[in-house]
Write a protein that binds this DNA or RNA. Sequence first.
DNA 1: CGTTTTCTTGAACAGATTCAATGCGTGTGG
DNA 2: CCACACGCATTGAATCTGTTCAAGAAAACG
Lengths: 231, 231
Amino acid sequence: MLDRSLIAGMPPFQELDGDALDRILRDARSSRYAKNASVFEQEEEASAFHFLLSGHIRVVRTAPDGHQIIARYINEGELFGIAVAMGRKTFPASAVAAVDCVVLSWPNREWAQFQAMFPSFGASAYETIGSRLQDTQARVMEMSSSQVEQRIANALLKLVNQAGRKTADGIEIDFPITRQDIAEMTGTTLHTVSRLLSAWEDEGLVKGGRQKVTVRDPHQIMLIAENRRRK
Amino acid sequence: MLDRSLIAGMPPFQELDGDALDRILRDARSSRYAKNASVFEQEEEASAFHFLLSGHIRVVRTAPDGHQIIARYINEGELFGIAVAMGRKTFPASAVAAVDCVVLSWPNREWAQFQAMFPSFGASAYETIGSRLQDTQARVMEMSSSQVEQRIANALLKLVNQAGRKTADGIEIDFPITRQDIAEMTGTTLHTVSRLLSAWEDEGLVKGGRQKVTVRDPHQIMLIAENRRRK
DNA sequence: CGTTTTCTTGAACAGATTCAATGCGTGTGG
DNA sequence: CCACACGCATTGAATCTGTTCAAGAAAACG
């Protein structure tokens, strides 16, 4: 049996008392996933849903032609792989550990139980889905109206907000991320990302590194994201 | 009091009996919206949710810079404006009648009631949200990998499937739609849309018209959408 | 220490946008 | 009921942003 302190206070479980937490943990299975291990694969039958206790997870969608994009990153304290909440039989994307991760999993049958027993859990889950829908629509807007430069700036800001860690040099993104990853988040090529980051590095706005990005001047990046920078 | 036959058999209410339908209709308000009238506006406080009895509704998102996109079209028998289901206070987009429409509306407070009393209603609603999330993610994929040509072909296929009407000439889209609208669905400009439709018209794949598109050869359009056409 | 992965950078190219001008329908107001 | 204005559509030409192609350097890994 897992200890209730693991999940107490995390958004989906925030309003639940000790007994409720114990009930929830009763049928939970906890697993470790090494960096680059997959938690589930796209098209795979969805028989369980998950909660990220620690680490960062990359959610990747692959097109029939092999082209792939990063749908989002999951942070500690988020539910993911909740296909069951949307009445789906299979996962629409794959989930890959960006660093070593610890994950709680429940069989799908528990979903209806939790929702019936703990309305605040259900509400929080649906808020999560709602906000992902908003994010995704915001991304569509961004891709139809903004320049690549703005999209990359926006992606950096998002990453910094979700997984920023203060260092002497600025705010560093707390997990390994390649230029290719950023390209897959913004719908461009690694070449363009590399060029832009290099340019920004020359201006002192960011600092690059192998699988690493540090933002030194978030304000300037924000101006770029909003296309309000003097050229 | 509205008659239960209005909504009987529509997806969200499919599994409900007569009493349930009556209960649901008890607090419903039905309204007519003339073509181009707005049902609700982006950023407006969401105090009600809606169901489209007849007509077609355009869901439009506007960016701070004025740029706008069409998030989706709502068809007869769909719930829309269900911000309440995602725990949102305001609408993330505007809803505009594409043709004269009839809409049922309920105050938000009914949402929790319906969901508690009629689980199949709740499940169907969350499936709707889930499938919109899928659609939107599919659109992001499309915009990052496909050419404009493919995206427009895809948009036409979507429209034809959702609102196609057979005519002597082929399948016509059942509501007025401008080149600009198609541009806002595909993240391009009306110029590019116009050029492509003209080219396809020369090849006999489609037939244009003022605020009208008729698809004559869906198969060829599908080949274009999948980028498998001989050049 | 060689191999692989990640990153950088130049040059050529192309698809789509932007700018500009014009034509066509349709619905409104005189 | 007709004229005219406005919204919608078409099409050419110039331009540009970002991709593609190509080559190579630097860092990590076994």
